[in-house]
């Protein structure tokens, strides 16, 4: 892999829940979401992740009006998990990062 740094985030858009409003496309700071070309089962052109560049900021999630159409993932920091830490602290760190 010639890419030195992996993406900090990852995006999953459920094509069948998306209504193609485009608010996530507008909201995304690195502009890595676009409206797809094909129609989903409801007849909407669903948003799609272009596949790279997500920072995991989660703004698209909050801008999206559908409860579960978008899921944002974040890269787990291996330095944090290299040292064994209590489970509760890991959970705390994750929810803190999501705010």
């Amino acid at each position: 892999m010639d890419k030195l740094k992996p993406d900090r985030g990852l995006l999953k858009i459920d094509e069948n829940e998306c209504k193609g409003c485009g608010l996530c496309v507008e909201a995304c700071p690195p502009k890595v979401i676009r409206i797809g070309d094909s129609l989903n089962h409801c007849g909407y052109r669903a948003a799609i992740y272009i596949g790279a560049g997500c920072t995991g900021c989660g703004i698209c999630f909050m801008a999206c009006p559908e409860p579960g159409a978008i899921t944002v993932f974040r890269l787990v920091d291996r330095r944090a998990t290299a040292v064994p830490v209590p489970h509760a602290q890991v959970e705390g760190a994750v929810s803190c990062a999501s705010n």
Binding site: G56, T71, V76, R78
Partner: peptide
């Protein structure tokens, strides 16, 4: 790479 869900359906 390990990714964990940060924002998902409440």
């Amino acid at each position: 790479l390990e990714y964990t869900a940060a924002q998902s359906k409440p």
